[in-house]
Design a binder for these strands. Structure first.
Lengths: 186, 186
DNA sequence: TCGAAAAGTCAACACGTGTTGGCATATGCT
DNA sequence: AGCATATGCCAACACGTGTTGACTTTTCGA
Protein backbone atom coordinates (compact mmCIF):
# COMPACT_ATOMS: atom_id res chain seq x y z
CA UNK A 1 0.00 0.00 0.00
CA UNK A 2 2.87 2.29 0.81
CA UNK A 3 4.26 1.37 -2.60
CA UNK A 4 1.61 1.38 -5.25
CA UNK A 5 1.91 -0.42 -8.54
CA UNK A 6 2.07 2.78 -10.49
CA UNK A 7 5.07 3.99 -8.57
CA UNK A 8 7.13 1.12 -9.84
CA UNK A 9 6.34 1.73 -13.49
CA UNK A 10 6.93 5.42 -12.93
CA UNK A 11 10.37 4.56 -11.64
CA UNK A 12 10.98 2.08 -14.45
CA UNK A 13 10.17 4.74 -17.01
CA UNK A 14 12.47 7.21 -15.33
CA UNK A 15 15.32 4.73 -15.18
CA UNK A 16 14.94 3.81 -18.83
CA UNK A 17 14.69 7.47 -19.75
CA UNK A 18 17.91 8.32 -17.95
CA UNK A 19 19.72 5.52 -19.69
CA UNK A 20 18.46 6.42 -23.14
CA UNK A 21 18.94 10.14 -22.77
CA UNK A 22 22.43 9.53 -21.47
CA UNK A 23 23.33 7.14 -24.25
CA UNK A 24 21.68 8.80 -27.24
CA UNK A 25 21.03 12.43 -26.36
CA UNK A 26 17.70 14.18 -26.34
CA UNK A 27 16.70 13.95 -29.99
CA UNK A 28 17.66 10.34 -30.67
CA UNK A 29 16.19 9.00 -27.46
CA UNK A 30 12.65 8.23 -28.58
CA UNK A 31 9.64 7.75 -26.35
CA UNK A 32 9.03 4.43 -28.04
CA UNK A 33 12.51 3.18 -27.24
CA UNK A 34 12.26 4.29 -23.63
CA UNK A 35 8.90 2.59 -23.30
CA UNK A 36 10.27 -0.58 -24.83
CA UNK A 37 13.15 -0.60 -22.34
CA UNK A 38 10.68 -0.22 -19.50
CA UNK A 39 8.52 -2.95 -21.06
CA UNK A 40 5.41 -0.81 -21.17
CA UNK A 41 3.31 1.02 -23.73
CA UNK A 42 4.51 4.38 -25.11
CA UNK A 43 1.19 5.89 -24.09
CA UNK A 44 2.05 5.19 -20.46
CA UNK A 45 4.98 7.52 -20.69
CA UNK A 46 2.64 10.29 -21.71
CA UNK A 47 0.14 9.45 -19.02
CA UNK A 48 2.78 9.58 -16.31
CA UNK A 49 4.98 12.43 -17.49
CA UNK A 50 2.81 14.46 -19.84
CA UNK A 51 5.35 15.06 -22.57
CA UNK A 52 8.86 14.23 -23.66
CA UNK A 53 10.17 17.54 -22.38
CA UNK A 54 8.71 16.98 -18.94
CA UNK A 55 10.10 13.46 -18.87
CA UNK A 56 13.49 14.87 -19.71
CA UNK A 57 13.18 17.48 -17.00
CA UNK A 58 12.42 14.72 -14.53
CA UNK A 59 15.33 12.62 -15.77
CA UNK A 60 17.76 15.52 -15.51
CA UNK A 61 16.51 16.67 -12.15
CA UNK A 62 19.06 15.57 -9.63
CA UNK A 63 21.27 16.83 -6.92
CA UNK A 64 24.99 16.97 -7.41
CA UNK A 65 25.43 16.79 -3.64
CA UNK A 66 28.66 18.68 -3.49
CA UNK A 67 29.97 18.14 0.03
CA UNK A 68 30.79 21.21 2.00
CA UNK A 69 34.44 21.74 1.19
CA UNK A 70 34.55 24.81 3.39
CA UNK A 71 36.12 22.80 6.22
CA UNK A 72 38.99 21.48 4.09
CA UNK A 73 42.21 23.41 3.63
CA UNK A 74 41.99 25.09 0.25
CA UNK A 75 44.90 23.13 -1.20
CA UNK A 76 43.07 19.87 -0.61
CA UNK A 77 39.90 20.99 -2.37
CA UNK A 78 41.31 20.23 -5.81
CA UNK A 79 41.88 16.56 -5.19
CA UNK A 80 38.68 16.25 -3.21
CA UNK A 81 36.74 17.68 -6.13
CA UNK A 82 38.25 15.25 -8.61
CA UNK A 83 37.50 12.31 -6.33
CA UNK A 84 33.96 13.49 -5.75
CA UNK A 85 33.19 13.95 -9.43
CA UNK A 86 34.70 10.62 -10.41
CA UNK A 87 32.52 8.83 -7.89
CA UNK A 88 29.45 10.84 -8.76
CA UNK A 89 29.87 10.32 -12.46
CA UNK A 90 30.14 6.58 -12.11
CA UNK A 91 27.23 6.05 -9.81
CA UNK A 92 24.65 8.34 -11.36
CA UNK A 93 23.48 8.48 -14.95
CA UNK A 94 22.06 11.96 -14.49
CA UNK A 95 25.37 13.73 -14.92
CA UNK A 96 25.98 12.00 -18.20
CA UNK A 97 22.44 12.80 -19.27
CA UNK A 98 23.09 16.42 -18.52
CA UNK A 99 26.41 16.57 -20.31
CA UNK A 100 25.18 14.86 -23.42
CA UNK A 101 21.99 16.83 -23.72
CA UNK A 102 23.42 20.20 -22.69
CA UNK A 103 24.95 20.39 -26.14
CA UNK A 104 21.56 20.71 -27.80
CA UNK A 105 19.18 21.49 -24.95
CA UNK A 106 18.93 24.90 -23.38
CA UNK A 107 17.32 23.64 -20.17
CA UNK A 108 20.22 21.32 -19.54
CA UNK A 109 22.70 24.13 -20.07
CA UNK A 110 20.94 26.28 -17.52
CA UNK A 111 21.00 23.53 -14.94
CA UNK A 112 24.66 22.85 -15.56
CA UNK A 113 25.41 26.52 -15.08
CA UNK A 114 23.53 26.50 -11.79
CA UNK A 115 25.47 23.55 -10.46
CA UNK A 116 28.85 25.08 -10.96
CA UNK A 117 28.03 28.69 -10.29
CA UNK A 118 25.80 28.22 -7.28
CA UNK A 119 27.28 25.13 -5.63
CA UNK A 120 30.97 25.72 -6.14
CA UNK A 121 31.20 29.48 -5.86
CA UNK A 122 29.99 29.59 -2.22
CA UNK A 123 32.78 27.28 -1.13
CA UNK A 124 35.26 29.59 -2.77
CA UNK A 125 33.88 32.74 -1.27
CA UNK A 126 34.03 30.97 2.10
CA UNK A 127 37.80 30.80 1.60
CA UNK A 128 37.87 34.45 0.66
CA UNK A 129 39.23 33.75 -2.80
CA UNK A 130 38.91 36.53 -5.34
CA UNK A 131 36.85 36.19 -8.53
CA UNK A 132 35.05 33.02 -7.51
CA UNK A 133 32.96 32.83 -10.70
CA UNK A 134 36.01 32.77 -12.93
CA UNK A 135 37.65 30.08 -10.83
CA UNK A 136 34.47 28.03 -10.79
CA UNK A 137 34.29 28.38 -14.55
CA UNK A 138 37.86 27.16 -14.99
CA UNK A 139 37.20 24.18 -12.74
CA UNK A 140 34.09 23.42 -14.75
CA UNK A 141 36.04 23.58 -18.00
CA UNK A 142 38.54 20.96 -16.84
CA UNK A 143 36.04 18.69 -15.10
CA UNK A 144 33.55 18.75 -17.95
CA UNK A 145 36.28 18.38 -20.54
CA UNK A 146 37.60 15.32 -18.81
CA UNK A 147 34.12 13.82 -18.50
CA UNK A 148 33.51 14.57 -22.15
CA UNK A 149 36.67 12.74 -23.21
CA UNK A 150 36.12 9.85 -20.85
CA UNK A 151 32.39 9.15 -20.98
CA UNK A 152 31.13 10.69 -24.21
CA UNK A 153 33.96 10.67 -26.72
CA UNK A 154 35.72 7.65 -25.31
CA UNK A 155 39.28 8.77 -25.95
CA UNK A 156 41.31 5.63 -25.34
CA UNK A 157 44.05 6.84 -22.97
CA UNK A 158 41.53 8.80 -20.90
CA UNK A 159 39.00 6.02 -20.64
CA UNK A 160 41.42 3.47 -19.30
CA UNK A 161 43.18 5.76 -16.87
CA UNK A 162 42.89 4.54 -13.28
CA UNK A 163 41.17 6.86 -10.84
CA UNK A 164 44.29 7.51 -8.81
CA UNK A 165 46.14 8.67 -11.88
CA UNK A 166 43.28 10.97 -12.77
CA UNK A 167 43.45 12.51 -9.33
CA UNK A 168 47.21 12.90 -9.60
CA UNK A 169 46.93 14.70 -12.92
CA UNK A 170 43.80 16.79 -12.45
CA UNK A 171 44.03 17.55 -8.73
CA UNK A 172 46.90 20.04 -9.02
CA UNK A 173 45.24 21.70 -11.98
CA UNK A 174 42.06 22.37 -10.06
CA UNK A 175 44.06 23.41 -7.01
CA UNK A 176 45.85 25.97 -9.11
CA UNK A 177 42.60 27.29 -10.57
CA UNK A 178 41.29 27.69 -7.05
CA UNK A 179 44.31 29.07 -5.24
CA UNK A 180 46.72 30.71 -7.67
CA UNK A 181 46.66 34.49 -7.81
CA UNK A 182 44.73 35.84 -10.76
CA UNK A 183 47.35 36.01 -13.54
CA UNK A 184 45.46 38.75 -15.38
CA UNK A 185 46.04 41.11 -12.44
CA UNK A 186 49.80 41.00 -12.50
CA UNK B 1 34.83 29.28 -66.78
CA UNK B 2 37.36 28.50 -64.09
CA UNK B 3 34.55 29.06 -61.62
CA UNK B 4 31.32 27.51 -62.72
CA UNK B 5 27.93 28.48 -61.42
CA UNK B 6 27.44 25.20 -59.66
CA UNK B 7 30.61 25.64 -57.65
CA UNK B 8 29.18 28.68 -55.96
CA UNK B 9 25.98 26.99 -54.87
CA UNK B 10 28.02 24.03 -53.75
CA UNK B 11 30.00 26.37 -51.56
CA UNK B 12 26.87 28.17 -50.37
CA UNK B 13 25.36 24.87 -49.29
CA UNK B 14 28.52 23.89 -47.47
CA UNK B 15 28.74 27.22 -45.66
CA UNK B 16 25.11 27.06 -44.58
CA UNK B 17 25.58 23.46 -43.51
CA UNK B 18 28.56 24.30 -41.35
CA UNK B 19 26.67 27.09 -39.66
CA UNK B 20 23.57 25.01 -39.00
CA UNK B 21 25.44 21.92 -37.86
CA UNK B 22 27.54 24.07 -35.59
CA UNK B 23 24.59 25.90 -34.13
CA UNK B 24 22.05 23.09 -33.79
CA UNK B 25 23.92 19.80 -33.89
CA UNK B 26 23.41 16.99 -36.36
CA UNK B 27 19.82 15.99 -35.64
CA UNK B 28 18.25 19.42 -35.38
CA UNK B 29 20.03 20.83 -38.39
CA UNK B 30 17.52 19.94 -41.12
CA UNK B 31 18.23 19.78 -44.81
CA UNK B 32 15.35 22.15 -45.37
CA UNK B 33 16.79 24.76 -43.04
CA UNK B 34 20.23 24.50 -44.60
CA UNK B 35 18.72 24.85 -48.06
CA UNK B 36 16.71 27.88 -46.94
CA UNK B 37 19.86 29.53 -45.58
CA UNK B 38 21.59 28.93 -48.88
CA UNK B 39 18.49 30.22 -50.71
CA UNK B 40 18.07 27.13 -52.81
CA UNK B 41 15.81 24.10 -52.99
CA UNK B 42 16.28 21.20 -50.59
CA UNK B 43 16.54 18.88 -53.56
CA UNK B 44 19.71 20.67 -54.61
CA UNK B 45 21.41 19.60 -51.42
CA UNK B 46 20.73 16.01 -52.33
CA UNK B 47 21.87 16.48 -55.89
CA UNK B 48 25.18 17.96 -54.80
CA UNK B 49 25.97 15.93 -51.71
CA UNK B 50 23.92 12.77 -52.03
CA UNK B 51 22.67 12.50 -48.47
CA UNK B 52 22.65 14.30 -45.17
CA UNK B 53 25.42 12.11 -43.83
CA UNK B 54 27.68 12.88 -46.76
CA UNK B 55 26.92 16.57 -46.43
CA UNK B 56 27.91 16.36 -42.80
CA UNK B 57 31.09 14.54 -43.68
CA UNK B 58 31.94 17.32 -46.10
CA UNK B 59 31.11 20.00 -43.53
CA UNK B 60 33.24 18.35 -40.87
CA UNK B 61 36.15 17.64 -43.20
CA UNK B 62 38.77 20.19 -42.42
CA UNK B 63 42.34 20.53 -41.42
CA UNK B 64 43.24 21.66 -37.95
CA UNK B 65 46.57 22.86 -39.30
CA UNK B 66 48.51 22.35 -36.13
CA UNK B 67 51.81 24.14 -36.66
CA UNK B 68 54.93 22.13 -36.13
CA UNK B 69 55.70 22.78 -32.50
CA UNK B 70 58.75 20.58 -32.64
CA UNK B 71 60.99 23.62 -33.03
CA UNK B 72 59.70 25.35 -29.94
CA UNK B 73 61.12 24.67 -26.49
CA UNK B 74 58.75 22.30 -24.78
CA UNK B 75 57.79 24.78 -22.08
CA UNK B 76 56.48 27.19 -24.68
CA UNK B 77 54.27 24.62 -26.38
CA UNK B 78 51.51 25.03 -23.79
CA UNK B 79 50.91 28.70 -24.44
CA UNK B 80 51.38 28.26 -28.16
CA UNK B 81 48.72 25.58 -28.18
CA UNK B 82 46.20 27.75 -26.35
CA UNK B 83 46.83 30.66 -28.70
CA UNK B 84 46.53 28.44 -31.73
CA UNK B 85 43.27 26.89 -30.65
CA UNK B 86 41.72 30.21 -29.68
CA UNK B 87 42.48 31.60 -33.11
CA UNK B 88 41.41 28.48 -34.90
CA UNK B 89 38.18 28.25 -33.01
CA UNK B 90 37.20 31.79 -33.78
CA UNK B 91 37.98 31.74 -37.47
CA UNK B 92 36.58 28.38 -38.47
CA UNK B 93 33.14 26.95 -37.83
CA UNK B 94 34.32 23.42 -38.44
CA UNK B 95 35.75 22.94 -34.99
CA UNK B 96 32.49 23.95 -33.40
CA UNK B 97 30.65 21.67 -35.79
CA UNK B 98 32.85 18.85 -34.72
CA UNK B 99 32.51 19.49 -31.01
CA UNK B 100 28.76 19.85 -31.10
CA UNK B 101 28.12 16.84 -33.26
CA UNK B 102 30.71 14.58 -31.69
CA UNK B 103 28.33 14.13 -28.80
CA UNK B 104 25.84 12.23 -30.93
CA UNK B 105 27.77 11.32 -34.05
CA UNK B 106 30.30 8.53 -34.16
CA UNK B 107 32.05 9.82 -37.27
CA UNK B 108 32.76 13.14 -35.60
CA UNK B 109 34.19 11.38 -32.56
CA UNK B 110 36.56 9.41 -34.72
CA UNK B 111 37.80 12.52 -36.46
CA UNK B 112 38.29 14.33 -33.18
CA UNK B 113 40.30 11.42 -31.88
CA UNK B 114 42.48 11.52 -34.98
CA UNK B 115 43.21 15.20 -34.58
CA UNK B 116 44.53 14.94 -31.07
CA UNK B 117 46.14 11.54 -31.23
CA UNK B 118 47.78 11.84 -34.61
CA UNK B 119 48.59 15.56 -34.80
CA UNK B 120 49.66 16.24 -31.26
CA UNK B 121 51.35 13.00 -30.32
CA UNK B 122 54.11 13.30 -32.97
CA UNK B 123 55.18 16.67 -31.58
CA UNK B 124 55.47 15.11 -28.17
CA UNK B 125 57.44 12.12 -29.30
CA UNK B 126 59.74 14.55 -31.07
CA UNK B 127 60.55 15.96 -27.64
CA UNK B 128 61.11 12.48 -26.31
CA UNK B 129 58.35 12.80 -23.75
CA UNK B 130 57.04 9.59 -22.24
CA UNK B 131 53.46 8.40 -22.66
CA UNK B 132 52.55 10.83 -25.43
CA UNK B 133 48.99 9.50 -25.86
CA UNK B 134 48.11 10.14 -22.24
CA UNK B 135 49.51 13.66 -22.38
CA UNK B 136 47.70 14.35 -25.63
CA UNK B 137 44.51 13.11 -24.01
CA UNK B 138 44.92 15.39 -21.04
CA UNK B 139 45.54 18.35 -23.29
CA UNK B 140 42.45 17.44 -25.27
CA UNK B 141 40.38 17.25 -22.10
CA UNK B 142 41.29 20.80 -21.07
CA UNK B 143 41.10 22.34 -24.53
CA UNK B 144 37.80 20.70 -25.40
CA UNK B 145 36.36 21.42 -21.98
CA UNK B 146 37.21 25.08 -22.33
CA UNK B 147 35.72 25.23 -25.82
CA UNK B 148 32.64 23.47 -24.52
CA UNK B 149 32.14 26.02 -21.75
CA UNK B 150 32.92 28.98 -23.97
CA UNK B 151 31.28 28.22 -27.29
CA UNK B 152 28.61 25.63 -26.59
CA UNK B 153 27.42 26.07 -23.02
CA UNK B 154 28.13 29.78 -22.84
CA UNK B 155 29.23 29.91 -19.22
CA UNK B 156 29.31 33.61 -18.46
CA UNK B 157 32.76 34.08 -16.87
CA UNK B 158 34.38 31.89 -19.52
CA UNK B 159 32.71 33.52 -22.48
CA UNK B 160 33.78 37.02 -21.57
CA UNK B 161 37.33 36.18 -20.60
CA UNK B 162 39.89 38.01 -22.75
CA UNK B 163 42.24 35.87 -24.78
CA UNK B 164 45.31 36.88 -22.83
CA UNK B 165 43.71 35.80 -19.59
CA UNK B 166 42.79 32.48 -21.13
CA UNK B 167 46.39 31.95 -22.16
CA UNK B 168 47.62 32.93 -18.70
CA UNK B 169 45.31 30.41 -17.04
CA UNK B 170 45.38 27.51 -19.47
CA UNK B 171 48.95 27.77 -20.74
CA UNK B 172 50.62 26.51 -17.57
CA UNK B 173 48.08 23.71 -17.28
CA UNK B 174 48.90 22.39 -20.74
CA UNK B 175 52.60 22.91 -20.12
CA UNK B 176 52.34 20.76 -17.03
CA UNK B 177 50.43 18.04 -18.88
CA UNK B 178 53.17 18.01 -21.49
CA UNK B 179 56.28 18.30 -19.37
CA UNK B 180 55.61 17.14 -15.82
CA UNK B 181 56.88 13.68 -14.93
CA UNK B 182 54.14 11.08 -14.96
CA UNK B 183 52.71 11.23 -11.42
CA UNK B 184 51.48 7.66 -11.56
CA UNK B 185 55.07 6.43 -11.81
CA UNK B 186 56.24 7.91 -8.55
C1' DT C 1 -19.73 -10.00 -4.89
C1' DC C 2 -20.11 -5.97 -7.22
C1' DG C 3 -18.66 -1.91 -9.35
C1' DA C 4 -15.94 2.20 -9.66
C1' DA C 5 -11.35 3.75 -10.28
C1' DA C 6 -6.73 2.75 -11.59
C1' DA C 7 -3.53 0.69 -14.91
C1' DG C 8 -2.55 -0.80 -19.28
C1' DT C 9 -3.37 -1.67 -24.53
C1' DC C 10 -4.35 -0.49 -29.24
C1' DA C 11 -4.83 2.02 -33.34
C1' DA C 12 -4.64 6.26 -35.27
C1' DC C 13 -3.69 11.30 -35.85
C1' DA C 14 -0.96 15.20 -37.51
C1' DC C 15 3.43 16.60 -38.47
C1' DG C 16 8.27 16.98 -39.89
C1' DT C 17 11.91 14.43 -41.80
C1' DG C 18 15.23 12.66 -45.66
C1' DT C 19 14.76 11.50 -50.13
C1' DT C 20 13.13 10.92 -55.08
C1' DG C 21 11.62 11.66 -59.88
C1' DG C 22 9.59 14.60 -63.24
C1' DC C 23 9.39 18.98 -65.12
C1' DA C 24 10.90 23.86 -66.19
C1' DT C 25 14.51 27.03 -67.04
C1' DA C 26 18.98 28.80 -68.07
C1' DT C 27 23.57 28.14 -70.02
C1' DG C 28 26.95 27.62 -73.39
C1' DC C 29 28.82 25.40 -77.49
C1' DT C 30 28.55 24.76 -82.81
C1' DA D 1 19.80 30.45 -83.93
C1' DG D 2 19.23 25.88 -82.17
C1' DC D 3 20.09 22.24 -79.45
C1' DA D 4 22.16 19.48 -75.69
C1' DT D 5 23.33 19.89 -71.17
C1' DA D 6 23.71 21.72 -66.71
C1' DT D 7 21.11 23.79 -63.17
C1' DG D 8 17.11 24.55 -60.50
C1' DC D 9 12.19 24.01 -58.70
C1' DC D 10 7.98 21.51 -57.37
C1' DA D 11 5.15 18.01 -55.56
C1' DA D 12 5.05 13.82 -53.55
C1' DC D 13 6.66 9.54 -51.26
C1' DA D 14 7.62 6.61 -47.27
C1' DC D 15 8.81 6.71 -42.70
C1' DG D 16 9.38 7.78 -37.81
C1' DT D 17 8.09 10.95 -34.42
C1' DG D 18 5.27 12.83 -30.22
C1' DT D 19 0.81 12.69 -28.89
C1' DT D 20 -4.22 11.50 -28.29
C1' DG D 21 -8.59 9.17 -27.35
C1' DA D 22 -11.32 5.11 -27.00
C1' DC D 23 -11.29 0.63 -25.35
C1' DT D 24 -10.02 -3.46 -22.21
C1' DT D 25 -8.18 -5.44 -18.16
C1' DT D 26 -6.86 -5.39 -13.43
C1' DT D 27 -7.14 -3.82 -8.65
C1' DC D 28 -9.38 -3.28 -4.45
C1' DG D 29 -12.49 -1.19 -1.01
C1' DA D 30 -17.59 -1.31 0.57
Amino acid sequence: MAEKKSDRTRAAILAAARERFGADGYERATIRAIAADAAIDPAMVMRYYGSKEKLFAAAADFDIRLPDFADLPLEAVGEALVRHFLRRWEEDDSLRVLLRTAVTNEVAVERMREIFASQLAPTLTAHAVDRPEIRAGLVASQVLGFALCRYILGFPPITTMPDDTVVAWLGPTLARYLTAPDPSQS
